[in-house]
């Protein structure tokens, strides 16, 4: 459970950062798939986990870079741009894998999937480490401050001498990179690289972010809130599983929760100010 969550968790961190700068990255879901597939193929060819990790990160980063350049440099709309790269990434994942799970992942990877420390799976530790690194990046560095300010008011950022382009491109790169890591972790969770692994995650990822109260307008929200949103969602899901609620009813409850959560977060934010 926790292990599966770290895929969503890592992807949601990327989405949170993109939301905070006032954008959206719909491609996260299928970039997870694409990097899983390509990484799986690379590992099948070389039998090296290290190369697999590098490949996954590289693929994710490349997609992020493409998104970032199109949005930050050429000024295309984030929604359409990432919708298009979402399609492209999915296509690549399916073409390269011929639509089936990639075989031949190294044995060591399964061991890694079962590895745990202090009773907590290693992948969860990785997720936590990424959370902490990103929180530091966002709240303790100038880059993070610039990100928040651009999300709050892009024009004012430009008029204050903040490098809007660089920050914007880099945030999409980071979001892609995190999707790449999430893709790799999905292989270690499932034992295989599945071409459709990320497709259904988009709802969960955006759901977790908005449930945490980070709005799409930019400049308002935090990673900690997203972690809270994920916590809420996963407690809910495991609770519902426990009492035997079928997955389709869980979908209904999730939808309602996302809606009510967003609404409450909006009300609370309005009241605070």
């Amino acid at each position: 459970m926790l292990a599966a969550n770290s895929v969503v968790l890592i992807a949601s961190i990327g989405m949170t950062l993109v939301f905070l700068i006032g954008g959206i990255d719909l491609s996260i879901s299928t970039v997870i798939s694409a990097s899983a597939v390509i990484s799986g193929l690379a590992m099948a060819a070389t039998d090296s986990i290290f190369i697999g990790v590098l490949t996954a990160i590289g693929v994710g980063f490349s997609f992020g870079l493409i998104n970032g350049i199109l949005i930050g440099f050429f000024g295309l709309t984030p929604f359409i741009t990432t919708m298009a790269t979402q399609l492209i990434a999915r296509g690549i994942a399916f073409v390269l894998s011929q639509g089936i799970a990639v075989q031949g992942t190294p044995y060591g990877l399964m061991d890694f999937g079962f590895l745990s420390f202090l009773g907590v799976p290693a992948v969860t530790w990785i997720g936590l480490a990424i959370v902490i690194i990103c929180i530091i990046l966002l709240t303790q560095t100038q880059w993070g401050r610039h990100l928040m300010l651009i999300g709050s008011n892009r024009n004012a950022a430009r008029f204050s001498g903040i490098n809007v382009r660089f920050t914007e491109i880099s945030v999409y790169c980071l979001s892609g990179l995190l999707a790449g890591i999430a893709g790799f972790i999905s292989i270690s969770n499932l034992g295989n690289a599945i071409p459709g692994v990320g497709d259904t995650l988009l709802l969960l990822v955006i759901g977790a972010v908005v449930l945490g109260g980070t709005t799409m307008n930019g400049g308002e929200g935090s990673i900690a809130r997203t972690v809270l949103g994920i916590g809420l969602l996963s407690v809910l899901i495991s609770g519902l599983n426990l009492i035997g609620i079928p997955f389709y009813d869980q979908l209904i409850i999730q939808g309602v929760l996302i809606f009510i959560g967003t609404w409450l977060a909006m009300k609370l934010s309005a009241r605070r100010h």
């Binding site: 401050r145 928040m148 709050s152 024009n155 950022a157 430009r158 001498g161």
Partner: peptide, 20 residues
């Protein structure tokens, strides 16, 4: 409002935006 201030950010961040 359009080109100067970060309206939904605190005064502190608005003050330091150009010379953190």
């Amino acid at each position: 409002r359009t080109n100067g201030l970060f309206l939904n950010r605190p005064v502190r961040e608005n003050l330091s935006a150009a010379a953190i």
